[in-house]
Design a protein around this nucleic acid. Structure first.
Lengths: 208, 208
DNA sequence: ACTTTTTTGGCATGGACGTGCTAGAAACGC
DNA sequence: GCGTTTCTAGCACGTCCATGCCAAAAAAGT
């Protein structure tokens, strides 16, 4: 038996095994036996770190996922339009590791629809995401005349793109092209901006 | 025992029970025992109609889903823009029955990601959907000058909206507002059209 | 040196479930 | 009326899995 292990490191190792299993075979296929195979740890050993139950393993793993993905989404450009594009591009990652994590999160979301205990965690994440999008959109339209109702609808558009790229990409066997995603989003946001007059023009119109 | 039953009707009854179970508790919760509870038929009786296996039940149900949803998506307006809006609005239905069916399809899609046998059926459906979107987009842009590459990208935008509304709506406990969905799509398509000059203007530009 | 904590490990049990297979009743066809 | 088909039904068994619980070895603390 080796010297002392950092329990957090061990838990993260187990979470990674769960993520890999989900990405490879779906969330339904996650069992202690399969985690054991992937980690090389015995079932009893795994259980030791998670209050003895598979459910705790699953909860911890969801927590790891949301934190990793949330952390990733905060490293962004200064330009508001570019930041929106970054956020949406994050929803359709291209690196293997990130893809696996995103796929796992989609699978968790589907499960959480019918499991109240996980639903709360997922809902909190969704609210955060929606708030980020809305906030970014406000920044991007700071120089435009737009009422709250229209802002809400435009936020829905962007959020739907996040959802669409997230789900669509997770369901594919290979990643979407990042340039495609960025081009689509950039064009959409520019057209969106173009639909609302700059604030200065509105003032000039009132004068004339 | 009643008189002769129409086997197709019986099978459809079972499929409906599966759909309800999926919508209520997720696809992972579908078992012969639960189908039995929902239909009032004994397990042996259910199996009789499906070659004895649950898997056949699941396959048949997927078939029912794709046919129902595909049939629904063909009753559309004449105006190409309105037709695109209709298709995308179908992805986020508001009636209880349609919602259940769409939710069930989303759950099947997630399962099919890691089950080759179902993947083929789902892939065929996705290809069809993408082709419908592309074709509608061509119609809507028939009077516009657009190259194939841009058309592909715009189709990706629309298809992503379909995916986004489909997944997003399925994950919610109550439906999106149809007017919101339609407003978002209509605005997006109009802006999209506005990004490409009419064919006549292009010809005039060439003359001058 | 002894006690406590940490880590690895796994037995035993019960539950859930799918499936191979069988049986009987009723409808139908000849 | 008899044989065939259809339909309803469920037993028995094997597989898979989570979980309550226990044990031993090694590290760490006193």
């Amino acid at each position: 038996m080796p010297r002392r292990v950092d329990p957090d490191v061990r838990r993260e190792q187990v979470a990674d095994a769960v993520i890999e299993e989900i990405a490879a075979h779906g969330l339904r296929s996650v069992t202690l036996a399969r985690i054991s195979e992937r980690t090389g740890l015995a079932i009893g050993s795994i259980r030791h770190y998670f209050g003895d139950t598979l459910r705790e393993v699953m909860r911890f793993t969801l927590n790891v996922l949301t934190q990793r993905i949330g952390r990733r989404a905060t490293t962004m450009s200064d330009d508001p339009v570019a930041r929106i594009t970054d956020v949406i591009a994050f929803a359709a990652p291209t690196s293997d590791q990130e893809r696996r994590e995103h796929i796992a999160l989609v699978e968790y979301r589907v499960m959480a629809r019918t499991d109240p205990e996980f639903a709360a965690d997922i809902a909190a994440t969704s609210l955060q995401g929606a708030e980020v999008v809305r906030s970014l959109l406000r920044d991007a339209l700071a120089d435009r005349a737009i009422d709250e109702e229209a802002l809400r609808r435009e936020a829905l558009l962007l959020f739907t793109l996040v959802e669409g790229f997230s789900f669509g990409s997770a369901m594919l066997s290979s990643p979407l092209r990042e340039t495609d995603v960025r081009d689509v989003v950039t064009a959409t946001v520019h057209r969106l901006r173009g639909a609302y007059p700059p604030v200065e023009e509105v003032a000039e119109d009132a004068l004339s």
